[in-house]
Design a protein around this nucleic acid. Structure first.
Lengths: 333, 333
DNA sequence: CTCTTTTGTGACAAGGCTGTCAGAAGAGGA
DNA sequence: TCCTCTTCTGACAGCCTTGTCACAAAAGAG
C-alpha cells in the first residue's frame, strides 16, 4: 500500500541507504546514481515518512509556532510568513496557540516538544516575554527565535521593529500637522511593545517642547472595545484632544466608531491614528493613518534565522513605515 | 536525556507493554497497576513520542486542517474551532494552507498525508469543492469531513449552514423594512456558497412579488475592493437601490467605504447588509446588519464528526442568526 | 473439583528511516 | 607497479512505541 524507501531502492537498483542519502542531499553519491534514484522517487511518487525520519534521525523536519494573540490579522500574517519560509525549506509548521497566563504553560510547551521532537520554535509576542516559556525552552536546549520580543536576550536570536521610533514618528507627524493636544491609548500591559510605543509618544512630545499630560493617556487592551472606551473618556474632557493616537488599529477603529456615534467628523473634528497597518486599517472609514509593521516579513525573517547555521544570537531590525491616510489631517486653525 | 516508556516501566515496576496499555486507556489493566503507572508517568513527566506511536501503531494522533481562504477572520475562527476539539481529544492539528488553483493540489495533499500519516482531514470551504482534492483523499481512503461544502457528497460527513435560507431571511428583512430596490453583490464564483446566497436573495424577492432585476446584481470576489467597485456601479444607476446586500462582510465594508466617500449617510440614504458576522462587522461604522455564521461551531462540530465512530456520512446543519445592527433601517417614505 | 472462560501481564517483532562502520572502487603519488 | 587517500555504496543496528501472541491467574460453569 504505502510506498517506502525500500520500494524506491528496488526500482532504482541501489541500497536503501543510498536512497536515504539522495533524499537528504548528502554528498558522496555519484551523479548518475542520484539521477536514477530521483527518477525512481518521481515514478513512485514517494514521500518519506516523517515519523520514521524523526525516530531514526536527529531532525524532525517540523518547527512549532507558538502564539497567544487575539488579533486574527496579526496571527494570520505571522502564520503566513513562517509558513512560507518553512515551505521553502521543506519543513512542516505546527501552529500552537497557548494561554500565556495558564498555570501549566511550561508543561504544555514541554509536552509539545517531547511529543513532536520539533527542531525549533518560533515565539510570537507576547509569548516572547513569558519567563516560564523561555525557561522551559532553554532547559530543553531547543533552538528558538523570538518575533518582536519586549525584552533583550543574549542567548537567542530575534527579529523586531523599532516600536519606540515608530510611535515617535507618528507623534511627530501629528505635531507637524499642528496638533498639540494628542490623546494616546496604551496597548495591552502584557505586551512589551505597549511600553515602547508609549515611550516613543512621550519622547516626540518632549522634543517638540509639548508638556506630557498624563490625563491624555488612557489604558487600552489592544481591542476594539477598549479603544472605544478610551475615546469616550478622552472626548469627555473640556479641552478635547484634536488627535488621538491609538497603540494599534483595532483600538483606532474603536475610536472612529465612537467619534462617528458622537457625530464628529473624522478627520475634520478629530484626527485618528493607529498602529500596525493590519488589513483593518483600510476597511474602516476613513482609512487609518497608521504605522506599517512588517509582520509577515518579521515572521519570514525569524524563521530564516531559526534555520540558519549561525551560532551566535542575531538581532535583526526590520524597517517600519508611516502610512498617511485620510483619518488624520492638519488641525483647524 | 529523553524520558521513554522504558524509564516509566522501570519506575512503576511493570513491563513496557503495560505502560503502553495505560497510556492508551486499554482495558485489562488492574486498577492498582494503572495507578502505579500513572504515578510514574506523572513523576517522570513523561510524554510519549508521537513519531514512535505513529510508526508502531495505526494512529498518528494528528489531523490536518486544509484551507485556502483569504479572510483572516474566517480561517482564524475555523482554526480555533478545530483546535479546541483536537485539544479535548489529545490530538494535534496541522494547519495546511493550499492553493486550490494549483496544478499539483492533489500531489501536495497526497504528500502531506504520506509524510504525516494524519488520521483524518478537515476541509474548509472552498477546498471542500475541489474535485482533485476530494479524489485524492478518497483514493487514499482517508477519513475527512467538510465544512460548508457547496456540493453534496454521500460518502463523507459535512457540517454547514443554510446559506440560501439565510440570504432569504436577510432579503426578507430588508423587504419588511420597506425596501424594494435591493442591490446584491455576488460572492466569489469559486465558493459554492455564493450561489446559495444568490438563490436565497432571489427566492425572497419572488415570494414578495418583487421583480428580479439582473442589473441590481453585481459580481464580487469576497474582498473589500470588489465590494467597493460593485457599490460604485450600483450607485451610479438612475434608480439607485435603497439597500445593498453584500454576500459577505468584507464586501459590505467596501460598500460602506464607497458610500461614505460619496457623502451618503448610512443607513438614512442607503441600507447596507453583510453576511458572516465576522469581527469586522462591528469594527466598521455603522456596525453591519449581517448574518451570523457559526464558523467556530461549524469547525468544532466537523472535528467532532471526524473523531466519531459512526460509519455512515452525517450531514449536520447548524443554525444561523440574523443580526440587525445600525447599517440598515426602514426606507424613507 | 475439574474444565472453560475471562482478565491481566510480558516477550518479541515490526514499523520506515538514519547513523555508524566497514569495505569496494577509483584517483593520485612514489 | 604498489600503496595511500578519497569517493562511493551497502549491511546492520537502533530509534520508541504498538500489535500479536503466549501464558498465568482468577473467575465462572458443570
Amino acid at each position: 500500500m504505502r510506498v517506502t524507501i525500500k520500494d524506491v531502492s528496488r526500482v532504482a537498483g541501489v541500497s536503501i541507504k543510498t536512497v536515504s542519502r539522495v533524499m537528504n542531499k548528502e554528498k558522496y553519491v555519484r551523479d548518475e546514481t542520484r539521477r536514477r534514484v530521483e527518477a525512481a522517487v518521481a515514478q513512485l511518487n514517494f514521500s518519506p515518512s516523517l515519523a520514521a525520519r524523526t525516530l531514526a534521525g536527529s531532525r524532525s523536519f517540523q518547527i512549532a509556532l507558538i502564539y497567544d494573540n487575539h488579533s486574527p490579522y496579526y496571527i494570520h500574517a505571522i502564520q503566513e510568513g513562517v509558513w512560507a519560509r518553512c515551505r521553502a525549506e521543506g519543513v512542516r509548521m505546527l501552529a500552537q496557540p497557548v494561554d500565556i497566563a495558564s498555570e501549566n504553560l511550561a508543561q504544555e510547551i514541554g509536552g509539545l516538544i517531547d511529543e513532536t521532537h520539533v527542531d525549533g520554535v518560533i515565539l510570537s509576542s507576547p509569548v516572547t516575554d513569558a519567563p516560564e516559556a523561555l525557561a522551559e525552552l532553554e532547559r530543553r536546549g531547543i533552538r528558538f527565535v523570538r518575533i518582536s520580543p519586549g525584552t533583550n536576550h543574549a542567548i537567542t536570536s530575534s527579529v523586531f521593529m523599532d516600536d519606540a521610533q515608530a510611535a515617535d514618528d507618528m507623534t511627530m507627524h501629528l505635531i507637524n500637522e499642528g496638533h498639540r493636544r494628542i490623546g494616546f491609548i496604551l496597548g495591552h500591559p502584557n505586551h512589551m511593545a505597549s511600553d515602547q510605543r508609549h515611550y516613543g509618544y512621550r519622547r516626540a512630545l518632549d522634543r517638540a517642547g509639548i508638556d506630557y499630560e498624563p490625563d491624555l493617556v488612557r489604558p487600552g487592551l489592544f481591542d476594539f472595545a477598549s479603544g472605544m472606551a478610551a475615546a469616550e473618556e478622552l472626548l469627555k474632557r473640556r479641552a478635547k484632544p484634536t488627535a488621538i493616537f491609538a497603540s494599534n488599529d483595532d483600538m483606532a477603529a474603536g475610536v472612529l466608531s465612537y467619534a462617528h456615534r458622537m457625530g464628529l467628523d473624522v478627520p475634520q473634528d478629530l484626527s485618528v491614528a493607529g498602529f500596525d497597518d493590519t488589513d483593518l486599517a483600510q476597511l474602516v472609514w476613513p482609512p487609518l493613518t497608521t504605522i506599517r509593521q512588517p509582520t509577515r516579513d518579521l515572521a519570514y525573517a525569524a524563521t530564516g534565522l531559526l534555520f540558519g547555521q549561525d551560532e551566535g544570537a542575531i538581532h535583526q531590525r526590520l524597517p517600519h513605515e508611516l502610512m498617511v491616510r485620510a483619518s488624520t489631517t492638519r488641525v483647524r486653525p
